[in-house]
Design a binder for these strands. Structure first.
Lengths: 182, 182
DNA sequence: TTGTATACTTACTTACCAGTAAGTATATTT
DNA sequence: AAATATACTTACTGGTAAGTAAGTATACAA
């Protein structure tokens, strides 16, 4: 991947995570990079191509982490997963699923499909993490792993949204509540 | 409030809850009502007026429920609160805070402010509900009411988003997990 | 050295969107 | 009966957005 392509993806991802898919234009990307709007179209002919590329890049990153973290305990893996959201929070960003999911019906088909696949990949991953933690007695909770996973993912996702809206630190208390419940 | 004004608010609220604030136009409202786009501008001169009116109407509704439900037990009140989300879920809608909050930085100032006030009103309300439930032994949990309230609000909010994205029933398991944790 | 791929710029089209000014129909008030 | 308020329509402006066609500069390869 060329440098410019990566720079475009980085800027667009930031815009999606603060303003959403429908509130940015190619001008918002081309201006800070000091190129023309048509240059962005050269790399990503349609806006939906750019949107899909951002989702795919995120899915690749998660796949990479999934592999890398296999050597760690379940506890450590979950803690690392929470740290991914903490990173967004420190930059005042919403996560991709939250940013795009809330306007799901307005998204082009290719983005809807890739986003759906992404969120299901995350769910499977976390269920696996929790099930293993229960099996080797690192975790102790009464809910079904699927139920627990959904609760964790859901609360992390929206704590980022609520952090912006309430102008308070919801993430902190949600993180504490999640760890207490394991 | 006139009939048309209410009809406009209803349609716009549905559009926000499925597509987000930046993905609908006055044409999307005027067409189904069989009026001209300028007629919508007559009722709400600027789009941000319409956006703010939708938030304000929601806040009024919540204030009304807050009053009406005072006669009920804490358990019943919380159950009613969850039912508000269940209503959205059954219509495949995201809640207002989720729909607007995820693109917070793109919203006009008046909407940002009203949305922030709304979410803080909800937090105060739920903390009150939980604190009373603890005091009269209807509830039994170890977290601080503030922490618990944030977890409940956060998980409800994003279960609606994740329902759309995963095309599964996250809300159901999140609701179960919340009730189990009280 | 000629060709070809890459990474753009220039210049444009088409379309839509928010917003407005001016006029019209109808009902209500004075 | 005249004046006024309400709820629009008609007709328009200015701006911006997505997307494209054609041309240019550079590097590297045949």
């Amino acid at each position: 991947m060329s440098d410019k392509r990566i720079e475009i993806l980085d800027i667009a991802e930031g815009l999606i995570k603060t303003r959403g898919y429908n509130a940015f234009s190619y001008k918002d990307i081309s201006e800070p990079l000091k190129i023309k709007n048509a240059a962005v179209h050269y790399h990503f002919p349609k806006k939906s191509d750019l949107g899909e590329a951002i989702i795919l890049r995120s899915r690749e990153k998660l796949k990479k982490y999934n592999k890398e973290w296999r050597k760690y305990t379940s506890k450590k893996r979950l803690s690392n997963f929470i740290a991914l959201y903490e990173k967004n929070q420190s930059l005042n960003l919403v996560c991709i699923v939250g940013a795009l999911g809330s306007s799901y019906d307005s998204l082009p088909d290719n983005m809807q499909n890739s986003l759906t696949e992404m969120s299901n990949e995350i769910r499977i991953w976390i269920v696996e993490m929790l099930s293993e933690g229960i099996a080797n007695k690192e975790f102790d909770f009464s809910e079904k792993p699927e139920e627990k996973a959904d609760l964790i993912i859901a609360s992390l996702l929206s704590s980022l949204i609520l952090d912006k809206v309430t102008r308070d630190n919801i993430f902190k208390s949600v993180k504490a509540a999640i760890l207490k419940g394991l």
